[in-house]
Design a protein around this nucleic acid. Structure first.
Lengths: 202, 202
DNA sequence: GAATTAATGTTGACAATGTTAACATTAAAT
DNA sequence: ATTTAATGTTAACATTGTCAACATTAATTC
């Protein structure tokens, strides 16, 4: 039986592997930890091999962002659409899942919802619509349901969605960036924020 | 009359000048634009001179952050304490001033309230208490006033403050990081957020 | 099936960056 | 006046993203 070559000249699936490994590196060690040398070394290729698949490091990271959004959608969309729970319950589940993700994957969360590569993201507006916005549209859908049930006021759901998202994103950001010195109360703060939101939205 | 030496060997006020120029550079060009070479060149000194005043670039940036907080306090505290306006009015003024600052100085805002140098900030806890928290304490004071007037519910003002701050910080962050694709409605979103807050806090 | 072309990977080099060591100059202290 | 501390300079280093020139494999064409 022929022994498998340890390091074949062609990797075979380098582009996807780069994205996967980079995503993993961001998640565990932060964006700064991604160097092309370290990244390619882990895959057994040379630094410059990246440039056969991406224009620059920036382009690669944007690919990672896209991948991250896609993964997130798989996580969140089912919660929004889970008809076995009431709208109010789903609202609570959504907020909790969102915060849990941010706290368990702070580096990834910052990459997806922070400043990084803002300009480039804005240029690639098609991807923006496809991925980044789907979560927001799911939230809008949930709010429309809530409007129908009379739980919240019937006003522009886009404005409502921005308000809700900002509230939870603010909580998540302050928390993972170490600005909530009262973080031992975090559960209490979250519950209070949710109650303020639901009360205020009516 | 002796002509002033164009470039004296000793700058005379290098430490403070470094902080000022660095702050200005962050504000106008972003944190990434700060390189020791560019920074020192603007002041007419050599790159390594920085190390006579700061252990590292990191330490210098932390100094910039401290300076930024001090400046911010001078901006916000008067609003909180302005007794010529009602509590509700000051609440509105505060939120608007906060958002205006974030939008006019996004790079500075990110440096002060984002992830940067989180660990180092947490280590220097005295500075954290002195500066970063003063704004929060001012907010807590305002909320206590509001509680006395019966505008909002009498519960733990720290929890309320976190909720309010998160809501506005979330709005500011999403805005300056380009995540609000409906940013043409921003004024409407802000007003709605404020109304949701006040209604929910009661 | 052989020859050509495209795709993919490697090596060496480059400029920019933060940092340090060794040295130079000025101010402060004795 | 001499010594010492403070402050500034220069040269060098390792690390980084990037690119050009070259090497190897896969795909295509005749």
């Amino acid at each position: 039986m022929k022994e498998k070559k340890v390091t074949p000249y062609h990797h075979g699936n380098l582009k996807e592997s780069l994205l996967e490994t980079a995503l993993e590196m961001v998640d565990t060690e932060g964006l700064e930890a991604i160097t092309l040398r370290e990244l390619t070394q882990r895959l057994g290729t040379s630094r410059s091999a990246v440039y056969r698949h991406f224009d620059s490091k920036e382009t690669l990271i944007i690919g990672v962002i896209q991948k991250g959004y896609a993964d997130l959608d798989l996580l969140f969309t089912p919660i929004f659409q889970d008809r076995t729970h009431s709208v109010a319950e789903r609202f609570e589940m959504m907020g909790r899942a969102y915060l849990e993700f941010a706290i368990e994957h702070p580096n990834l969360y910052r990459l997806l919802f922070g400043e990084n590569y803002r300009h480039e993201r804005e240029e690639a507006c098609d991807y923006k619509d496809e991925n980044q916005a789907t979560g927001l549209y799911a939230l809008i859908g949930l709010l429309l349901e809530a409007q129908e049930e009379g739980i919240i006021a019937k006003i522009d759901p886009i404005v409502q969605a921005a308000t809700v998202w900002a509230s939870i994103h603010g909580l998540a950001s302050l928390m993972i960036d170490g600005h909530l010195m009262m973080s031992d109360n975090f559960e209490e703060i979250y519950k209070y924020s949710q109650s303020v939101l639901l009360k205020g939205l009516l």
